[in-house]
Design a protein around this nucleic acid. Structure first.
Lengths: 173, 173
DNA sequence: CTGATCACTTGCAATATGCAAGTGATCTTT
DNA sequence: AAAGATCACTTGCATATTGCAAGTGATCAG
């Protein structure tokens, strides 16, 4: 995946800081296609990226150590590589922690916040089709998701942007 | 992935046909969690699953050979394993081709059709954030997606269910 | 009957994942 | 101020997945 990540990053202009010397060889690969479905799949289609975003949106997680505690049990090296990738494609942003210099604070960019509706659709689909879904514990949330999608999106977005996460215990307590 | 697939399938009750003998050992693993975000990620979070669904929804593809022609270039063995997995988790259904016995027809189940809104959100996100997105070629479609999401969903759903795919050349020509 | 087509399968090399054990920098405690 | 804990990673290695290329057997078309 690391190789794929690097190739995608080369294709994506996001990380272009125009260094002194351009690499002699241009990156040989690119996105497999620029079909919008494929773009999202190549950006987010693995077993961890959206879980990290989920933890930021619903749990208000912000540091490496917090992400590491995810119920699904991500390995330290995988987490590091995913955070790095998400930062480089511009979904999250890393900034120094004010009080503890060992830590960094990861926050969602606007591009990252734009994934909230994607999370919502994932949740709706799973709530309907996973017979064991923990979504049964918060039917109100799911109902609201269906009825007031747009409103919910804005609310959540503002909340997360403000550094908070009101629904922390709703989706994945 | 095959191992993961098998484990997930064991956890998912979909494929339980109660064979004569249950395996002595119960499958040791399960979904990593039943968080709805994670359920969707584990079902669809790889580099191919949603592209196959895309090809069914937007291109009206129905046979192995058609899927194989996807622009992204899926390998024959990977395609076979993904079709098998998608069928086993109940997203697609395999049935014999009427006229050519070498072929089978793959169609979306209701569970599969329920992924259309997920595709829509992927498209919206990519249209906004991929500077090279081919979505620039059909701004009307994207605009409609934002404005009349629910209506669009129903339309598309009926279309696909009827075996057709009106927008075949819109998303990924 | 012969050769093409179709939907796969198999073997193998290249990648990616995940576990466990570091490592160095920064707290925190004594 | 020294010693130990904590934090965010990195490294090495075994295992799992991916993808290429070359089959294979069952239809189909001529």
């Amino acid at each position: 995946m690391q190789v794929i990540f690097d190739i995608l990053l080369a294709a994506c202009k996001v990380s272009t800081m125009t260094p002194m010397k351009r690499p002699a060889k241009k990156p040989k690969a690119d996105y497999r296609s620029h079909c919008p479905v494929n773009f999202a799949v190549e950006s987010l289609g693995d077993r961890w990226a959206l879980l990290i975003v989920r933890d930021m949106v619903f749990h208000g997680k912000k540091t490496y150590g917090e992400f590491l505690k995810a119920e699904e049990g991500i390995a330290t090296n995988i987490l590091a590589s995913r955070l790095d990738f998400l930062e480089r494609i511009g979904v999250i942003k890393k900034s120094p922690h004010g009080e503890d210099q060992r830590k960094d604070i990861y926050t969602l960019t606007e591009k990252g916040l734009d994934l909230i509706p994607v999370l919502f659709e994932f949740i709706k689909w799973s709530a309907k089709h996973d017979p064991l879904s923990s979504a049964v514990h918060y039917p109100q949330f799911v109902k609201q998701l269906k009825a007031n999608r747009g409103k919910f999106n804005k609310k959540m977005r503002d909340l997360v942007r403000s550094g908070s996460s009101l629904y922390t215990n709703v989706i994945h307590p």
